[in-house]
Design a protein around this nucleic acid. Sequence first.
DNA 1: TTCCCGACACTACCATGCAAGTGTGGTGAT
DNA 2: ATCACCACACTTGCATGGTAGTGTCGGGAA
Lengths: 246, 246
Amino acid sequence: MEISRSARVSGGSTRQQAYQVLRGLIETVQFPPGQRLSENELAERLGVSRTPIREALLGLRDDRLVEIVPQLGTFVAHITRAALEDAQFIRVSLECAAVADAARRAEPAAVGELEDLVARQAEACRGDVDRFYPLDDEFHRRLCSLGGRAVAWSISQRASGHLNRVRRLSLPVPDYLAEMVAQHRAVLAAVAEQDPGVAESQLRLHLSRVLTGLGEIAHTHPEYFADDRDRNWASTLSPPHDPRSR
Amino acid sequence: MEISRSARVSGGSTRQQAYQVLRGLIETVQFPPGQRLSENELAERLGVSRTPIREALLGLRDDRLVEIVPQLGTFVAHITRAALEDAQFIRVSLECAAVADAARRAEPAAVGELEDLVARQAEACRGDVDRFYPLDDEFHRRLCSLGGRAVAWSISQRASGHLNRVRRLSLPVPDYLAEMVAQHRAVLAAVAEQDPGVAESQLRLHLSRVLTGLGEIAHTHPEYFADDRDRNWASTLSPPHDPRSR
DNA sequence: TTCCCGACACTACCATGCAAGTGTGGTGAT
DNA sequence: ATCACCACACTTGCATGGTAGTGTCGGGAA
């Protein structure tokens, strides 16, 4: 897995490439939670020195994707209920606020582009499912940009490392993907009709759907999780949100 | 300004201390926007090597407080309207969502502690005004923790570097501080009455107040600001830089 | 006087060396 | 057989050296 093959296309500095590669390996669970990450070993395998590796790992630590213990080692972070709750809170808060702004400033041209994107998602459901996730991310990113809140997506994405891992662990059931597409359509329709309230509540519903399969995943892959309490994941993770707020 | 005198008390690694020191110097505008920051010079002045300085600067780049131009230099970021809007959006979105949760789970004991805190703020208004800002931060931090959303404050604080600078530039008019305290009381009252909607709208009103003096500050300190549209020298000084991918 | 151009000083990026601390496994004593 | 202990291998944190690229400034030509 040399860096030249994995992500030379992404350009940028060695540090950025290393960050992208490592983040991808962690989010796709190719580096499973708990795995030890040695600066020396990673530097050798990626064909660079320790410095950019080290700096990339510091960034991943900010994302709570790795845990660095001085003089001991660096480890891929276990999935915890607290981390998932935090990530979900950040994502819902930022993206819902962003989509509300998007609904207020909805431009027909941009909405049309998003509809095309959703149509491509519907195709990807039936074809290669690995193509769905990038389209999903692209949808949410442009939804934020639509309201002039591109920063919402960048922060949300940065904080959603744990969520992306459980998303990857979820088996891509076609029905599930079709439901995603339908929810995207619902959000987009509300945006097109310039109804911030409905757009926000629809997006909130959509985002809460990501964690529904969590209990099952925690059961099939217990070694990926670190219980910071009980294992009652699904019950507390989608708290009854007040739909009337805001 | 050796690191041993400035922040040895903060403990932690050299990198964390360097980050704290530099962030403080930037937020208090002792390092004014546009100032050049040389790794070598900072390392010498703080009495450490370039490595922890460099890593601290990378963190400050994530916070958008410095701009690193490869092979050219590192500069304290100018204050821009876009950066302020982004920071404000993040802060409002996260803290409003957090305070809504706080209102739902309001515990009388914790509310009482916050009332004590507000009382101390009222004292600080008349006394040393420099004591007000830490109390202000503490109030917002504990408000987030109250609803189990401590992460909201940590992310908000990390993103609020630009806001903290304009706060520092605002002259501490006593009336202004008194108004802050009154708004804190209003938010807290809504939380105590377990009214998420009012708590959220009151906090939104309070947070929007921070930027009211912005126009005047931009007039008295034009050199600290960079119009993010024209001004030729600014475009060459902040060239189209890699869109934060770290 | 004005303009072009080249040497220079300086930058951040990356590579590497050294030091302090921790877990482990083997060895010796009991 | 069991336990204590010590040396070793390995870790990250920090210091330092080398490299490619950029802006600056001064000298020479027009």
